[in-house]
């Protein structure tokens, strides 16, 4: 059984438990144990791109460093957590001024003291774990209840793919990883142009009408392309599409479908 370090993030512990529970269970079936990092802290939800913004990125560095210490890649599922972890890791690798500031904090004596960190840890999204470590062929061979005949649209949103120079998961304009996933669980992917456009994000708090407009545009485009269902990896995307989108197209976490296909969850 292979082990990886796992950063669930705050939303997966509360509002998006399905995302977390099924991810762990499915990984077990596929031969990987998600080992939750002890004492992880909230990633902050967004990566502030200002180079002199240090303190808000420390929790991500601590998580990255802890996984590194365990000698394991760090896996996350929530698009936002993954984006913050990956961008922070890249900054630790490439921005020496930033890294030296951060290391100045984390190596100070006292509680939480750590060794200096320079971005050595591999950061993987759960989808990358499926594609690059486990392999979609293996996933396919483990499927007990293929979702045959289901037309599923992948909703990437922004954070999984962009900025592509850092995220490096897939082609940012014509991604395939979720489509490959959908094929692996026996369903048919539906390509639609808005799959990598923003749902409105945190603007739902301040400017609900914007979130409504953006989410509705995504859903309308997906249903016009023939999708019966959308999958996402992001709790905020799911919230916006569900609550702000003016279109009844159902949206589920991709891990739920994986669990159904593997026979872990009742369909």
């Amino acid at each position: 059984m292979m082990k990886v370090s796992y950063f669930p993030g705050c939303t997966l512990k509360t509002k998006a438990k399905q995302l977390d529970i099924y991810a762990r269970a499915c990984a077990e079936v596929l031969g990987v144990t998600l080992e939750e990092l002890p004492d992880w802290q909230c990633c902050g939800g967004v990566f502030n791109t200002s180079k002199d913004e240090i303190a808000t990125k420390l929790s991500a560095v601590r998580a990255l460093s802890a996984a590194g210490k365990a000698g394991q890649p760090l896996v996350s599922i929530c698009s936002a957590c993954h984006n913050v972890l990956k961008q922070t890791n890249a900054a630790m690798q490439n921005d020496s001024e930033f890294a030296s500031h951060v290391n100045h904090y984390i190596t100070q004596t006292g509680q939480g003291q750590m060794a200096p960190y320079h971005g050595e840890t591999t950061v993987l999204h759960y989808l990358e774990l499926l594609r690059d470590v486990i392999g979609f062929d293996k996933v396919k061979s483990c499927v007990k209840y293929p979702l045959t005949g289901k037309k599923i649209g992948a909703y990437y949103g922004c954070l999984l793919l962009r900025p592509s120079s850092v995220m490096a998961m897939d082609d940012p304009e014509n991604p395939q990883i979720l489509e490959e996933f959908i094929r692996a669980i026996g369903a048919e992917p539906v390509i639609y142009a808005m799959r990598n456009e923003c749902c409105g994000g945190y603007m739902t708090l301040e400017e609900k009408s914007l979130a409504q407009k953006k989410s509705t545009a995504v859903l309308d485009n997906a249903s016009s392309a023939g999708a019966d269902l959308l999958v996402t990896a992001c709790p905020l995307c799911k919230y916006n599409l569900d609550k702000n989108g003016q279109n009844p197209l159902p949206v589920v976490y991709f891990t739920e479908l994986l669990a159904e296909a593997l026979g872990i969850k009742e369909a």
Binding site: T11, K15, C78, L205, L236
Partner: peptide, 26 residues
């Protein structure tokens, strides 16, 4: 631009933490 006191009025039961944390950070 936003203060923690303003948050409760904006919440609904499904709103993920992620949204609040992100907004505060931004």
């Amino acid at each position: 631009h936003i203060t923690p006191d303003e948050i409760p009025a904006l919440l609904d039961e499904d709103l993920p933490q992620q949204a609040i944390v992100s907004a505060l950070r931004k």
